[in-house]
Amino acid sequence: MNKIAVVILNWNGAKLLPQFLPSVIEFSQNATLYVADNASTDESVEILKRDFPMVKIIQNTSNFGFAKGYNEALSFVDEPYFALVNSDVEVTPNWLQPVEELFDKEPNVAIIQPKILNYKNKTHFEYAGAAGGFIDKYGFPFCRGRIFETLEEDKGQFDDEIEIFWATGACLFIRKKVFQELKGFDVDFFAHQEEIDLCWRSFNLGYQTKYTSKSIIYHVGGATLDVSNPIKTYLNFRNSLYMLVKNLPFKKLLPIIFLRMVLDGIAAFKFLFQGKLFHFIAVGNAHFSFYGNLIKCYRKRNKIQKPNYFKTKSIVYLYFIKSKNYFTLIF
């Protein structure tokens, strides 16, 4: 049996599958390929059956989003290593071998991320994940190669293999046994930041997440939900608060949540002043949803919350006040 299962979550990706699936098929000879379809209403399943018979199809009964969509689909997958790949990803030769070797060599490594470059500008890192993710003390995520909206050119500065804090869901490798131990993604997230929550929970249990530059992929990004969509704003703001309540050390919980909510308010009024009324409303709705689910989130906390989760105290301060817009200028 192959060790790696490449599982692509698809929803109405009839245009994406013919464009990106061929590279996955070509360069994944020693893996089992699956497409998990989230009840698409387009011709996705018909295209898969007709043009890609070598790919196994898992058909979810509804559009469960990223989190539950993967949880449902992966229950049917037997391989010991999962490669969770977005439908808008182009892979390269030898993208799987370094990951399999790292899993085999280091049993405490639970999650791995490859180098992620921009499909539309292949000399630069891509927004979602870049060269590995971290968070600051207040839970703001950033990456080597991408801080907020600033993307670095790939000049080999991150050609290494290091421990990171989180790996992006655009292309995330995880051991099946760890995924099961963590009970998968938190389905209440639906989509966005559930992978950071997963990695944080893995970290609290003592596992490592690593990045390897020996594996390279190209990601389009925003193919399912564009950054200009207020739904994306709502999910990001709400899920960030969910994640903090679940994973922060108890002593830091109240002060950091309070400060994050103040900063969210500032961000909301920034949207309003920019004429983005629906994004302003989305932040408010995110907070109301958070209030309604606060107790439920709190009950999901692990017994252990490790204190050394953050890379820096405030990436917001460094980026917006100190104008440190490149990872290599900060660390």
Rank of each mutant, 00 (worst) to 15 (best):
S75I: 05
D159E: 14
S40L: 05
K120F: 08
N63D: 10
V99C: 13
N94C: 01
Q113N: 01
G145C: 11
K115Y: 05
A130K: 07
P141F: 06
E90P: 05
D51I: 03
A39K: 11
G133T: 08
E101T: 15
D88E: 10
Y138D: 14
A110G: 04
F76T: 15
G129S: 09
A128P: 03
I47V: 11
V45G: 00
A39E: 10
V45T: 06
P93W: 11
A128G: 05
T32R: 13
L96D: 10
N30V: 01
F142T: 04
D37Q: 15
T92N: 10
P141K: 06
N94F: 05
E106K: 10
E152P: 03
I116V: 06
Y70F: 12
I147T: 09
T150M: 14
E101R: 14
A130W: 06
F103S: 07
G69H: 05
G65T: 08
E161W: 00
V45C: 05
G133H: 11
F140S: 09
Y70C: 02
D78N: 15
N121Y: 04
F142Q: 06
N71G: 08
Q29G: 12
I162D: 09
P114K: 00
F82H: 04
L102N: 03
G156R: 04
E100R: 05
N86K: 12
A31W: 01
P98E: 11
D42F: 06
N118M: 07
V77G: 02
E149Q: 12
M54T: 11
M54R: 15
K137Y: 15
N118D: 15
A67H: 03
V55E: 07
I57T: 00
D154Y: 01
K68T: 02
N121F: 08
V85Y: 10
F76W: 15
D37I: 00
Q97V: 12
I111M: 07
G129D: 03
I162L: 10
D159S: 15
F148L: 10
T61K: 13
K105G: 09
E152K: 01
S28D: 01
I58L: 03
E100M: 03
A131S: 15
D136I: 03
D37E: 09
V77C: 02
R146C: 14
